[in-house]
């Protein structure tokens, strides 16, 4: 089943009198359970596309179908609800609340959900999420007391607290060294294989893209290539390391 379908998505920013087209007709289908890497040069519009996919932004033109629902024309409140229930976000800079324990960070999205869990249920669910990302013994640590990789895993737990079918990650390893990047990527792979969560991540790093089972290459607002990682990353690595 198609989880996400984009048809002719365009995004144009208006800078005063000048119209800046950033996305120029993107059509795309992503199926349930895929692990997709989105690559491309800087300024090619990856983040812009991710924001539209993540329902943080609305396209200027085109259709966006998510789980059989056209979402590009939804109101801000409807999109907020959608983000809460169906979409998870992981950011490059973690974006954890400072001076707030890991467990409270993870439980935070629950307070905006329609479920209205009790304080205790929310904590239980957050603790369960944290133990799934391997931080069962760090529940009451504040972000400042955690390593970068641990912080990013807290962020992943937070993104998954409402059990969304899709997880978006904009350069999730951008602020991490290669060893902790690997930790986070293994986390993604596990979520992908064990829980069949669809993951879409933006990355510059071919090695990171190598973990995906599909790589989409963007250039100047259009899709340049769409293939499994071998075909995509091999010519790059051979070209990059003569």
């Amino acid at each position: 089943m198609e989880l996400i379908t984009l048809r002719g998505i365009e995004k144009t920013y208006q800078m005063g009198d000048i119209a800046v087209p950033v996305l120029k007709g993107i059509s795309l289908a992503i199926r349930q359970g895929e692990l997709v890497a989105l690559t491309g040069s800087s300024g090619s519009g990856k983040s812009t596309l991710m924001n539209i996919l993540g329902c943080l932004d609305r396209p200027s033109a085109g259709e966006y179908w998510l789980e059989g629902q056209e979402v590009s024309q939804l109101s801000a409140d409807e999109r907020a609800l959608l983000r809460n229930r169906k979409l998870g976000f992981v950011f490059q800079s973690f974006n954890l609340l400072a001076r707030t324990s890991a467990i409270e960070n993870v439980a935070m999205p629950l307070s905006y959900g329609a479920e209205h869990l009790s304080e205790r249920e929310a904590r239980e669910r957050a603790a369960e999420m944290l133990s799934r990302v391997g931080l069962a013994d760090r529940l009451d640590h504040h972000p400042a007391q955690l390593s970068g990789g641990q912080q990013q895993r807290v962020a992943i737990a937070r993104a998954l607290i409402n059990r969304p079918p899709v997880l978006f990650a904009d350069e999730p390893t951008g602020n991490l060294d290669s060893k902790t990047s690997e930790e986070v990527l293994q986390m993604f792979e596990r979520l992908h294989t064990e829980d069949h969560i669809t993951i879409i991540m933006v990355t510059h790093d071919p090695k990171v893209a190598g973990h995906a089972n599909r790589v989409i290459r963007m250039d100047d607002g259009v899709i340049q290539g769409d293939a499994p990682p071998a075909a995509e990353s091999k010519p790059k690595t051979t070209a990059g390391a003569p």
Partner: peptide, 16 residues
């Protein structure tokens, strides 16, 4: 501001 952005990203509506 960033906290507000984050809260909105995880589903907080304007009125929240």
């Amino acid at each position: 501001t960033r906290e507000i952005g984050l809260r909105m990203a995880v589903g907080a509506r304007g009125r929240d």
